[in-house]
Every structure is written in structure tokens, then in C-alpha cells.
Design a protein around this nucleic acid. Structure first.
Length: 296
DNA sequence: AAGTCGACCAACCGCGTCGTA
DNA sequence: CTACGACGCGGTTGGTCGACT
């Protein structure tokens, strides 16, 4: 089965956006909010693909974007997050307010990669280049015991498929031991278990429950969505609990949020929950916030 | 002044995932 | 269970600009 095109390419503009197109897009989103990218171009009077509109808004037109050079602190944070997450640019971007995944990706490829190589560090493995090239010959699953400056993080999930997916990431900080959590995350159907084995966190590592409940309570749901699904928090039995506000309105009688609507109002939940690496707001609009952590 | 090269970055493309019918 | 629409992500491309010769 072939993949259908995301839009009618014959009647869409490509390439650089004009000022007029930008103004139209901004005006439309200000008036109607984000979401439903497929229908947005037509509604906004733009001869653009929905994808293109989304990208333009997210990467360039969004009012909360921070323009300008990256600071040294941001550099170091990106390096650390990349050592933890790999090329998960959207997750990394979620930790840097005002920065986009595309911006960070570009910055990584043009600046930080070179910076690490100059330091003698392999930008892919975050290990010293000599050690890194030598270790490529060895089996990746054979991990050494944890030392004072080595961290293992593992995730195990069988949430959506019978196949158990695991992720192990090993990070070394030569010379400088750092405290970090080792988390094990297990999720089976409606049951979920989050074990936090250590509570010392230096990167504010937290596991976050998706805040879809709060979004649907605030009328931020997209039109035409199902009204029978239950939010993740409810499915965990957290109704009326600390993590879920469904007590106000049971989420099995309201619609669940899709990717539509603004993110206003979700910040409190993120900051009060178990936000893992400060998952980007867009990530928390669905269970993707968790699933993104399952390394492929 | 003209040509070349590399850096930068906006934008595109293809694929994976999710939700729904 | 399957097909399909829609969205989001990551890799890649290509245009622009400044530095250098």
C-alpha cells in the first residue's frame, strides 16, 4: 500500500516563506489556535502543505521562541542530554525553553559535534575517541559494573506490544562522579509500575504522566475525537488522586485531547508531576511522552 | 572584483506512531 | 483486526551569506 501524500502537491508553494505567508499563518493561529494542520492552509488562505505550516510555526513563528546564540550553559546541557537521549532532538528541545528541535539539531551538527571532537570525545558515543572506536568491536550488551563515574539507565516496557523493548544507556563523565537516578519503568496494559530506585537527581530526571486529562478538562480537545477513551492517569487508578484532576470531571465522559489546542494550563501539571527530562509540552499531549523514551 | 569554499539554517521528505472508523 | 488519516520526528537537502584567495 502506497503512502498517500500529505497534501495536494500540485497546488502548494514550496521553498522560503514570504512575509505575507508568515503574517497569514500567524494571524490564523492567533485567531484559531494551533492544530488541524491539514485543514489550516486552506482555512488560512495559504497555498502551503499543512506540514510546512506546522514546521514554519514551530521553528520560526512561535512567539515564545528564543532567538540568538546558544549560551555556554545551553551547550553543556545539550551535550549532557544528548549523552542520555541520543538524537532525540524533540526531547532535548523540551528541556531548553524557547529552542526548537530543528534549531538544536542544526546547532549540534554545526557546532557541538566539532566542539566534542576537539575535546577528543566521540560525539556519538560521548566517550573518548580512542576508547570509543575500540569499544565498537566489543559486544554492546556487555556492560561493565557501575563505577563511581558511570551511569546506567534502563527502561523496560511492554505497553503496546508483546515484544519487550529495552533501552540501556551508558554515560561516562570522566573524572567527575555525578549523582543520577537509575529508573526502571514497566508498563503492562492498564497497569503501570514506576520504580525509582534512587532519588538523587542532578538533571531533575522525572517521569511524567501525560497531562491529557487537564487539557480535556479545559476544553482544549480537538473536534471529532472519541469521547469514550480514558486518560492515562485514570487508567492508573489515580482518579481524585494527586496526579490526576479527573475528579472534577471524569475523563471517561469527556473527550481526550489530541494534538490540537494550545498548551496553556498544562505547565502546572508538568511541574508537579514526574516530568522526565521536562518532556516537551507537545510530547505530553499523548502517551507519546512515555513512548518516546522507549529507544528503538 | 570575481570566484571558491565552507558554515549556517530553513525547509523538505520519508517514516513511525497514534487514533479512529 | 485492518486500513487510513493525521501528526510528529529525525535525517537530509539546498539556498544564502561571509570569509578567503
Amino acid at each position: 500500500m502506497g503512502r498517500s501524500p500529505c497534501c495536494e502537491k500540485a497546488h502548494t508553494n514550496k521553498g522560503a516563506w514570504t512575509k505575507e505567508e508568515d503574517e497569514r499563518l500567524v494571524a490564523y493561529i492567533k485567531a484559531h489556535g494551533e492544530g488541524c494542520w491539514r485543514s489550516l492552509p486552506k482555512a488560512a488562505g495559504l497555498l502551503r502543505c499543512g506540514k510546512s505550516c506546522r514546521l514554519r510555526w514551530i521553528n520560526y513563528l512561535r512567539p515564545d521562541l528564543k532567538r540568538g546564540n546558544f549560551t555556554e550553559e545551553e551547550d553543556e546541557l545539550i551535550i549532557k542530554l544528548h549523552s542520555l537521549l541520543g538524537n532525540k532532538w524533540s526531547l532535548i528541545a523540551g528541556r531548553l525553553p524557547g529552542r526548537t528541535d530543528n534549531e538544536i539539531k542544526n546547532y549540534w551538527n554545526t557546532h557541538i559535534r566539532r566542539k566534542l571532537i576537539n575535546r577528543g570525545i566521540d560525539p556519538t558515543t560521548h566517550r573518548p575517541i580512542q576508547e570509543s572506536s575500540a569499544s565498537q568491536d566489543s559486544k554492546p550488551t556487555q556492560l561493565e559494573p557501575i563505577t563511581s563515574n558511570t551511569i546506567n539507565i534502563s527502561f523496560t516496557s511492554s505497553a503496546s506490544t508483546p515484544k519487550v523493548e529495552t533501552f540501556q544507556e551508558r554515560i561516562s563523565f570522566p573524572g567527575k562522579p555525578e549523582k543520577i537516578s537509575m529508573l526502571t519503568f514497566k508498563e503492562e496494559k492498564n497497569e503501570s509500575l514506576v520504580e525509582e530506585k534512587f532519588t538523587d537527581l542532578n538533571l531533575e530526571l522525572r517521569i511524567s504522566l501525560p497531562d491529557v486529562v487537564d487539557r480535556c478538562h479545559q476544553g482544549l480537545v480537538g473536534e471529532g475525537k472519541s469521547k469514550t477513551s480514558r486518560c492515562f492517569k485514570c487508567s492508573l487508578g489515580m482518579i481524585n488522586g494527586m496526579e490526576c484532576r479527573c475528579g472534577r470531571i471524569r475523563c471517561d465522559v469527556v473527550g481526550l485531547g489530541g494534538s490540537n489546542g494550545s498548551n496553556k494550563g498544562s505547565d502546572n501539571i508538568i511541574s508537579n508531576g514526574f516530568d522526565f527530562l521536562g518532556l516537551s509540552k507537545k510530547e505530553t499531549t499523548s502517551l507519546l511522552g512515555f513512548r518516546s523514551l522507549e529507544m528503538k
